[in-house]
Design a protein around this nucleic acid. Structure first.
Lengths: 241, 241
DNA sequence: CGCCTAGTTGAGGTAAGTCAATTCACGTGG
DNA sequence: CCACGTGAATTGACTTACCTCAACTAGGCG
């Protein structure tokens, strides 16, 4: 199920053969568990392994010297964790499990071997990082140019769309294990302000964030308010046949 | 010279054979000129060509409905323009020449053909997008969690390092055709505030931005102030031999 | 000569931050 | 069973970094 959601994502870019799918599958062997809050990738570390997230949520973030932190992205089942730290040989960020998580470990050497053996699989994986870049860019624009309310709205919508693609959400809403502190660190706000913004969105009848549940009270109004356009998140058919 | 700076960048990830280099070179044929200020890639357009920048500066940005704009990144000689719009089949951003620029056009079909013929070249190009992602992430953290002063300092330092890698800058400084409006749109600030921040940095004896010239008056103090660590911008040797 | 664009500076407004107090749910140990 | 601590959410009072509006200067150019 999870392997298939990864295969689906990669297949959006490069049509994968049975051989390539089986190599992908062979990467997917060494199961591990990590508990919430204990980082599995550290800034500055080199020769990391990467991981494929099977269940639970994680986030990648950076720390500044003054103790501030910025969450760059959240990962949900089917996403890679710490892939960039393998590709660039050294990690520029940390990865923390938001909940307890199940992952499969992919050693850097195994991944590079697979890249040599099946370049088309490599292309698919690398291609997918370009979609990740598009997501980070959206996030950047959001933080740089939107009000706190629009940021929050956009963020909750994007997460909803991503979760829907792996069957964990819908237009009604989704289960969301994040705290208001996570939201604050992701959106570049203070936790206090996050609370106020959430209340305003709730009072306006757009969205409710409460007890681990996000409920879209008026999806369309929220999407309009946030100028949300989900095209960058999905792909119709493979680009390279 | 420019082709070599691109080859150098790609060679940092995958060691390229003579054949692969010649395919790269064959992409590099159709010369074109664009004048400053006239966009060459538009948000929402599909089946774009991509471009390799030979001389001049460009920037990629997004527009919001209320007219605000956020510059995501600047491109300098040796960088791709609009690569993501080819990879994802549709452009999620605009590209504007900051100065008059010379580029070589790469048709989407030619690029995908080259991907099929020389997968290792494809891997190199895609790998490089993962470095781009690291840059966008730095930018994101900058905007999300730093004061206006630190943002500006970090930005000017990063640009300096990138320019040094292609021989257009040094620890002393570099030629910079950007206006204060460009800086404002890149850093998520107002142009007025950019002006004040620049003056403060100049008064502190750290950096001077004036008449198209950036001068590092005290490089180390500036780097400390901005918590600048350039490792993510360069690579020592090829990862895949 | 006038217009445009880039830069500069001042005065005053506002979105979001900081500090602080309170509540509630939860677990843990006496 | 209660006392206690801890982490998350909530709200109020006050501060501040940055924005907006506005006026002015200086260079480039038709």
């Amino acid at each position: 199920m999870i392997a298939s959601s990864l295969a689906r994502k990669l297949g959006a870019f490069v049509k994968l053969s049975a051989t390539e799918l089986s190599v992908l599958d062979s990467l997917n062997k060494r199961k591990r568990i990590f508990v919430a809050g204990r980082d599995l990738v550290h800034q500055g570390q080199s020769d990391q392994a990467a991981y494929i997230l099977a269940s639970g949520w994680a986030c990648s973030y950076k720390l500044l010297r003054d103790g501030e932190r910025q969450i760059v992205d959240f990962q949900i089942p089917g996403d890679f964790l710490g892939l960039r730290s393998v590709l660039l040989h050294t990690s520029d960020h940390n990865v923390e499990p938001v909940t307890d998580i199940e992952v499969t470990e992919v050693l850097a050497s195994d991944l590079l071997d697979a890249f040599v053996k099946t370049p088309r699989l490599a292309m698919a994986i690398l291609w997918a990082t370009s979609r990740d870049e598009a997501m980070v860019v959206e996030h950047l624009v959001d933080i740089g140019r939107c009000s706190a309310g629009a940021r929050m709205a956009h963020f909750l919508l994007e997460l909803g769309t991503r979760l829907s693609l792996v069957g964990l959400g819908s237009r009604e809403g989704y289960a969301c294990p994040l705290t208001q502190y996570h939201l604050a660190d992701a959106l570049g706000l203070s936790a206090v302000h996050v609370n106020r913004v959430l209340r305003k969105l709730r009072d306006k009848g757009m969205v409710t964030f409460r007890e681990g549940l996000v409920t879209f009270d008026d999806y369309d109004a929220l999407a309009t308010f946030a100028e949300f356009d989900p095209t960058y998140l999905d792909q119709i058919g493979p680009i390279l046949v």
